[in-house]
Every structure is written in C-alpha cells, then in structure tokens.
C-alpha cells in the first residue's frame, strides 16, 4: 500500500513539447535570442512579402533614381523599382533558394553518407574517392565553371550548389555515422532482428542528429553566401527576380557618388549569416557540452 503511494508521489507528469521549448528558450543566452529574433523577422518578411512590401516585386511605375521619401522609403533604383519593396521580396528569393539548396544537399549527402557507413566496401570506397576529388575544388570556382557550361538559371544554380555541398555533407554524415554504426545499441538492434530501416531511422539517425543539425546551419550560411556572391557576379539569380546579391551589383556605381544604398542589401545578407551563426553556436554548446576556453 505504502509502496504505491510512494510511486504516485514521485512520478511527475512528463513535460510537454511546448514546456520543453519554453524551458530551453528561457535558458538561452542573449546572443542566441538576438539571432532567433532576427531569423524570425527574416522568415516573416520572406513569407508575407507581398503583404508587407508597399509595391509589387517588378513594379517599375515610379521614376528611376528617386531619393528617399514617404512613398519610397529608400528611394528607387535605376529602373524605377521601389528599393525597400525589392529588399523585402529578395528575402523570399534569396533565402528560399538557399534553403532549398541546403535541404537538397542534406538529403543527398546524408543519405549517401549513412549508406556508405552502413555498407562499407566498394560503395563507400567509390563514393568517398569521387567526393575527395570534388572537395579539392573550391566551390565558387566550380560553380562558376558549371554555370558557364550548363547555363545560368535558378534551377541550374540549385542543382550545382546542392551537388557541391552534398559532397561536404557526405563527409560529415559518413564520419558521424561510422562512429554510431559500431555502437552496442546498433549491434543489439541487429541481433534482435530489426531491419535496416529501423536501424537507420530509430538507432543511427537520432544519435547523429545534433552534429548534422549544426552542420545544416553552417551549410545554409555557406550556401547563402555563395548564392549571394554568384548573384553579385551576375551569374546567380537573374532579374527581374529581386535578390540581395544582384541588388548590390546593379546599384554598385552609386557608391562612388556617396550613396550608401547598395550597402543595405549587403547588410541584409550579413545580418542573417551572423544571426544563424549565433544560434548555431548556442546549439553547438548545448549539444556537445563544449565550452570555449575551458
């Protein structure tokens, strides 16, 4: 009788997912909070761009080169686009494309990486050697070359960057999966007769997820910066789509006349990367228990 009472007294209700989220967020440092708020604002801008922006994306009804005023907060560019609206629409294009690319590269890279770690043998050897060769070429150079071969365009851009990035993801996924595959819990799952699917999704993936998520954040930043650089160089996202990199390139001559306008889209890029980095740093510290400086 008393044993049962003791038990009911000790067992607390499990925290719900929401409670857990609130608890984690409360413990977050200011830098990570700042990063998350910035990311949230960017996400809102990207999703609700048509409702937030005062003018449509390709609207050129205004005169070109207008100074900033109440109707055009940041003025207009050479073709008469409202600069502020373009800035907001660019969030949608630039972040969207970077996100799709990062997701795709993660899907391909981690699938290959985990398969290679499980299979070993010729498959692992073959893929690893090919990946090694690709790793030896700088991404920007290779992307430039491929874009000149198969032509500019958003689809080509996503495919090329996803492929190049997948090689980097593969390396990490394979390395962490190799550590997980030799664990006792994988062995015991195998001995109890679980199928490959169970072993991959219930044993390996949950255990290698933290480093993969961290890597995802960093890879997203990298892809995002590469796309911005390629667009800046004029071979990335093409007009009339608004995009931060090409907005800098289109208006770069204004700098020489003392206008800071081209700096705004560049700042938008920098702020998002800083924000993502801050959040990733916090996540890294939480999951690895790593403290810089000891």
């Amino acid at each position: 009788m008393s044993a049962i009472q003791l038990e009911t007294r000790l067992i607390k209700g499990r925290r719900t997912l929401w409670q857990n989220i609130v608890r984690t967020l409360k413990a977050s440092p200011n830098s990570a909070r700042f990063g998350m708020i910035v990311m949230l604002i960017y996400a809102l801008c990207a999703i609700f761009a048509p409702w937030i922006a005062p003018f449509p994306e390709a609207d050129t009804s205004a005169k070109g080169m207008l100074p900033s005023s109440w109707t055009h907060i940041m003025g207009t560019d050479q073709t008469g686009h409202d600069f502020f609206s373009r800035l907001i629409f660019a969030a949608r294009n630039t972040i969207g494309i970077a996100l799709i690319t990062a997701l795709l590269s993660f899907f391909v890279g981690s699938t290959l990486g985990i398969t290679a770690a499980l299979q070993r043998g010729w498959f692992d050897q073959g893929v690893s050697r090919v990946v090694d060769a690709f790793l030896a070429i700088p991404v920007l150079i290779f992307a430039l070359m491929m874009l000149s071969v198969i032509g500019k365009g958003v689809f080509n851009l996503i495919m090329i960057l996803a492929l190049l990035d997948a090689t980097r993801v593969f390396r990490l996924a394979r390395a962490v999966a190799l550590n997980a595959v030799v664990m006792d819990y994988v062995e015991s799952a195998r001995l109890r007769g679980e199928g490959t699917r169970w072993i991959v999704f219930r044993e390996i993936v949950p255990n290698i997820l933290p480093p993969l998520i961290t890597e995802f954040g960093l890879r997203f930043c990298f892809v995002f910066l590469t796309i911005a650089a390629l667009s800046f160089l004029g071979v990335g996202i093409q007009p009339p789509s608004a995009d931060w990199g090409s907005m800098v390139a289109e208006n770069k001559s204004l700098i020489s006349y003392g206008y800071a306008l081209p700096l705004y889209p560049a700042f938008a890029i920098a702020l998002l990367t800083v924000a993502v980095n801050l959040v990733v740093d916090w996540f890294l510290q939480r999951t690895s228990g790593l403290r810089d400086g000891k």
């Binding site: 800046f232 770069k252 081209p262 700096l263 890029i269 800083v274």
Partner: peptide, 29 residues
C-alpha cells in the same frame, strides 16, 4: 572576427570603398 567571417566579401569591400575611398578620399574606389 565572428562578424567579419559571417559577412560576404563584397559587403566588407563596399564598406571600405564607401568610407575610405568615397568619404575620406584616401584611396581610389
């Protein structure tokens, strides 16, 4: 350094152009 790493090169470049070449006129843009 963390902020510098996260910035695209052309942002840093244009800030330098803006400040050192256009405003202060120390260098050519």
């Amino acid at each position: 350094t963390l902020t510098t790493i996260a910035m695209p090169e052309f942002f840093i470049a244009y800030i330098l152009v803006y400040v050192l070449a256009v405003k202060l006129r120390w260098f050519y843009p």
